[in-house]
């Protein structure tokens, strides 16, 4: 017997089992939803927009089209412009696992950023221009936008969440004094 890769296989317990690799690829083409389309347009313009629930006042970035807390639908009328600077509330340093498609090879930072008023949380952001070991909670940061001609939102869809690196490369320290990290212990995620 041979398997589809042409390797000898066996059904008896005497010889080792031969394994075959079977890669599969599936393609999905998702239609980008209306709020995310507007979010993309704003990113091309180096702006961050969000939706704010009129009831609980929570700010959702990227906009979802609804507030899951109050179960009300949100639309353009609930959209607000956000600041592109804020504070690192928490972070981790990830040692990359080399799975298929992983491009990172060195330890990298993913930080939660609380944007200045009117607020909004951006999670899993890169922190640039500073050694990984020096990143800390309470650090003041500002957005690093890709130059206008290089800005790209093709990767941004309904599911990409806060992965914005095509347009918003990450955040860098502003050099302002740190804010007290304890004040943001409930602004992690």
């Amino acid at each position: 017997m041979t398997d589809t890769a042409g390797n000898a296989t066996t059904t008896s317990g005497d010889e080792p089992v031969t394994m075959m690799e079977y890669f599969m690829q599936l393609e999905y083409s998702d239609v980008v939803s209306a709020p995310v389309m507007r979010f993309r347009d704003a990113l091309m313009d180096a702006r961050l927009i969000a939706q704010q629930c009129p009831k609980c006042k929570l700010v959702y970035v990227p906009p979802k089209g609804y507030c899951p807390i109050d179960t009300v639908e949100l639309d353009e009328r609930n959209e607000i412009q956000l600041a592109d600077r804020g504070v690192v509330t928490n972070y981790t340093v990830v040692t990359p696992v080399q799975y298929y498609g992983q491009k990172e090879t060195e330890p990298f930072v993913r930080a939660s950023i609380l944007l200045d008023p009117p607020g909004g949380m951006l999670i899993l952001q890169d922190v640039l221009d500073i050694p990984v070991a020096e990143v800390r909670a309470g650090m003041r940061v500002e957005a690093v936008w890709a130059p206008k001609g290089e800005r790209d939102v093709d990767e941004i869809g309904n599911r990409s969440g806060s992965a914005l690196e095509g347009s918003l490369r990450g955040f860098r320290p502003t050099g302002e004094p740190d804010m007290p990290a304890e004040a943001f212990s409930d602004k992690v995620w």
Binding site: V31, V32, K64, G65, Y66, T71, E73, N158
Partner: peptide
């Protein structure tokens, strides 16, 4: 090819 996401039309 609904433009709404699954959550958006489930809502």
């Amino acid at each position: 090819q609904a433009q709404a996401t699954e959550v958006q039309f489930l809502f």
